[in-house]
């Protein structure tokens, strides 16, 4: 049975513990950033940031401020399109682990041409993979495969202080996602789960995805 994450954005405080923990666990170096008028930094996912908290603010019609946080990462799709596209070029460049459901980039990624890489990145409905010029690798969240295959939970989930992120067996996580969605309907009438049938990282949003991030949800 594959594993799954629930990311309940209605509990997220954008403390960015997950963003830091991911970098730490994967030994990824800091990159130079600038303040450009937003707290979102680095501005986008990149080979050194596989997990990124996105910030989005808006005012409602009745003049209320809403500030949404979206801890972005690979969704570890049930049927990963990136893998299908990669298989057409270099079979085994992207694999799906049958035990955990983790979608992983392998060393064979280095054999992909520039066009292959572009096709894979474009194919991802969630705009996740990034290309590392230096290592010639595709980079993205690996579900902390080393931790999970040793019985530990992913580092981002471990670091989360508010229960925004939970990790476990897909069936249990789906049930928890539905339970939370039902409970939230009173305070967040527009709340919904992002593509729960298709992904193993299930985001729970409080309102429409345009108030979070354009690639938050496919459907």
């Amino acid at each position: 049975m594959p594993k799954a994450f629930l990311v309940d954005t209605t509990r997220c405080t954008a403390c960015r513990g997950c963003q830091m923990a991911c970098k730490d666990w994967h030994n990824l170096p800091a990159i130079e950033t600038k303040q450009t008028g937003t707290h979102q930094n680095p501005p986008d996912l990149n080979p050194c940031n596989l997990k990124l908290v996105r910030f989005h603010e808006h005012k409602t019609k009745d003049n209320k401020v809403v500030w949404n946080f979206f801890p972005d990462q690979c969704r570890h799709c049930v049927n990963p399109i990136c893998k299908d596209v990669a298989d057409m070029a270099v079979p085994g460049a992207i694999i799906k682990d049958s035990q955990t459901g983790a979608v992983l980039c392998t060393e064979k990624c280095k054999e992909l041409t520039a066009d292959d890489v572009k096709a894979i990145i474009t194919a991802c409905p969630y705009n996740i993979p990034r290309y590392d010029e230096a290592t010639k690798m595709l980079t993205k969240c690996d579900m902390c495969f080393d931790r999970v295959s040793n019985g530990l939970i992913p580092m981002c989930v471990k670091s989360c202080p508010t229960g925004t992120m939970v990790f476990g067996e897909r069936a249990e996580i789906l049930a928890e996602a539905k339970r939370r969605l039902e409970a939230l309907k009173k305070t967040f009438p527009k709340a919904y789960l992002c593509d729960p049938k298709d992904v193993n990282v299930i985001f729970l949003l409080g309102e429409e995805k345009e108030h979070y991030y354009e690639y938050a949800s496919f459907m």
């Binding site: 830091m20 970098k23 730490d24 800091a30 130079e32 950033t33 303040q35 930094n41 680095p42």
Partner: peptide, 8 residues
Amino acid sequence: PNLLEAEP
């Protein structure tokens, strides 16, 4: 460095 990256 990682914290300075997030709020530089």
